[in-house]
Design a protein around this nucleic acid. Structure first.
Lengths: 132, 132
DNA sequence: GGTAGTAGGTACCTAGAGGAAAGTAATGGC
DNA sequence: GCCATTACTTTCCTCTAGGTACCTACTACC
């Protein structure tokens, strides 16, 4: 995935669909990245355990994986303090902050969630006996 | 996923993170939905095989699954013509079209893909021997 | 000596998403 | 009679993301 994403970035033509937003989705909306970025955006610079507690259902293994990925992509900055009990702090990078309008657009669209819910209810009610 | 999403929509408080954009991500950016919506947005109303050929690497089974999901969520409209060889046409619904600014924001952000690539190269080069 | 606390790493395992391939109904064309 | 076409469905299989549980180093504190 990392490899193929790199290819898309370079060639601009991915094999799957020629959909220009796919690489962005790959980077920003892979699993767990949204809550992590949101937590860092909302509550600022914080330590590993704080993130762990805030997200609650994430396991330390996966949190580490996602943070490494976000750090590699330049969206998050990790600072290590080699103290007595080790301390690490994470914060959003400037590149990460450039995602703000994107997240704002997402938040705005959430006004349509009610319509989605209504569509689902209606779909489920007329379900048995459609054209096939 | 469907069930828990419904809960979030109703309660407004998901167990995972209290991140308000999570339900939207769940609906709009689950796997394959981006290329499908993009294809329908770019090339308009089209048939199953057209979508299949356009996306190329998707299997019919998965394409059917995703289209059903998008139809249920009210983002796509399916029209069935009970003809001799059956014909089905898909198009974006009005609700689906309301995603346009969101996709525009995504496309805009893709100008930062170069920075991501640079961050990755740098991370991979300084890799061995960081603070841990 | 035992325990707590931080920030993970590691080994093992499972569930579920997704892929491959074949089947299906209905009919027109050769 | 046989093949092609459409829009799937079904069965089987694989693969990997993610979960569980335990381990690590280092020191302070009791």
């Amino acid at each position: 995935m990392t490899e193929s994403t790199a290819k898309w970035v370079q060639s601009g033509a991915d094999p799957e669909n020629a959909c220009p937003v796919a690489p962005v989705v790959d980077i920003v909306f892979s699993r767990w990245t949204t809550p992590i970025l949101w937590a860092l955006h909302e509550y600022g610079r914080q330590r590993f355990v704080e993130l762990e507690r805030r997200i609650a259902t994430i396991t330390p293994k996966v949190l580490t994986q996602r943070l490494r990925q976000l750090e590699r992509d330049g969206l998050v900055v990790r600072t290590y303090y080699p103290e007595v009990p080790p301390r690490v702090e994470y914060e959003i990078s400037e590149l990460g902050r450039s995602l703000a309008p994107l997240f704002a657009a997402l938040a705005e669209w959430s006004v349509h969630l009610g319509e989605v819910e209504r569509a689902r209810v209606e779909y489920d009610s007329r379900e048995p006996g459609r054209g096939r």
